[in-house]
Every structure is written in C-alpha cells, then in structure tokens.
Amino acid sequence: MQFTMTRRYRFCAAHRLHTDHLTPEENRTAFGKCNNPNGHGHNYVVLVTVRSGANEGAVALERLDRIVEETIVERFDHQDLNQDSEFAALTTTGENLVKLIWNLLAPKLPAGILEKVGVIETRDNYFEYAAPTGPR
C-alpha cells in the first residue's frame, strides 16, 4: 500500500518580476504592476507532498517539519526573493520558486519520498512541481 501526505507551510516574502534580458518597457509590458521597482509581497503557502507505504521508509512529521522550516521558511520568510543567490540568473516567478523549493528539499529527504511541491502565491496563482520519473 502506498499513501501520500501533504503538509502546509507559510512564509511572507517580497519580490519584483524583472529580467535584465528585457528593456524597462518590455519588463513593464510583460509583468505589469508586478514589475514595480519597489517590489511587492505575497503570503506564500507551500504544500509539500511526501510518499509513504508499507514497504518504504516514511519520513516522520516532526522531521519533515524541521527540514522544511530550516530549509525553506527560515530562508525565505520576510526576505526579498530577488536578493536570494539562487535567483541571481532567474526571474522570481512562481514556476522558478516552486522548482527551487523542490531542489532545496529533495536532497534532504530520503530518496523517492518527495512526491511534489506546490506554491500558492495568490488566490488565483498556484504552481506545482514534481521531478520527472524517467523515460515515458
């Protein structure tokens, strides 16, 4: 038998959608009010889904919570995402954030346990990432 379990975490962070590959006008056109030079903030919700089953090792909830708190929440809470070193060459979009969160968590959890990561950025914006599982 295999089950998945999803835990919810929260952090507040600011960012500005902007890329140096576009002109200021192109950035304003592409990102609208989210390109505000002063940035803007979100109350992010991160959903971490892990696998467990009768024949697999499960990750204890306390351990999962500690890993996510130390790796994700402490890193991003009340920060400017544009100042994070991982975003030096990336735009701080929800797609890039959810993949970064996956990449930060996956090595800290038992192999194969992490099923997917979701990020709720706004009432209308949800981003989800799960690493590819081999040839299809």
Results as ranks from 00 to 15, higher is better:
M1H: 11
M1D: 06
Q2F: 12
F3G: 10
F3I: 12
T4F: 06
T4Q: 10
M5A: 14
M5R: 14
T6G: 06
R7E: 14
Y9E: 03
R10A: 11
R10H: 14
C12Y: 03
C12L: 05
C12K: 11
A14I: 03
A14L: 05
H15P: 01
R16Y: 12
H18T: 02
P24C: 08
E25Y: 08
E25M: 09
N27L: 06
R28Y: 09
T29H: 08
T29I: 13
A30Q: 13
G32S: 13
G32L: 09
K33I: 14
K33L: 12
C34W: 00
N35R: 04
N35A: 14
N35M: 09
P37H: 06
P37C: 06
N38E: 04
N38T: 15
G41T: 06
N43C: 13
N43H: 08
Y44I: 03
V45S: 07
V46D: 00
T49I: 05
V50F: 00
R51S: 07
G53E: 13
G53N: 14
A54S: 11
E56V: 13
G57P: 09
A58N: 04
A58R: 02
A58T: 03
E62C: 10
L64W: 06
D65Y: 10
I67P: 00
V68D: 00
V68E: 02
E69K: 05
E69N: 14
T71I: 07
T71D: 06
E74G: 04
E74N: 13
R75L: 10
R75S: 07
R75A: 07
D77N: 10
D80A: 06
D80K: 06
L81H: 00
N82M: 04
D84L: 12
S85D: 07
S85R: 15
F87E: 06
A88F: 08
T91G: 02
E95P: 09
E95L: 10
L97R: 04
L100C: 13
I101R: 03
I101Y: 03
I101S: 01
W102D: 01
N103S: 08
L105E: 00
L105H: 02
L105P: 00
A106H: 04
A106F: 05
A106V: 15
A106E: 11
L109F: 08
P110A: 02
P110N: 03
P110E: 01
A111M: 08
G112C: 04
I113P: 00
E115Y: 08
E115L: 06
E115D: 14
K116R: 15
V119K: 00
I120L: 13
I120H: 15
E121T: 07
T122G: 07
R123A: 09
N125M: 11
F127D: 12
E128L: 13
Y129P: 02
A130I: 05
A131R: 12
P132F: 11
P132E: 15
T133K: 15
T133C: 09
R136L: 10
R136W: 12
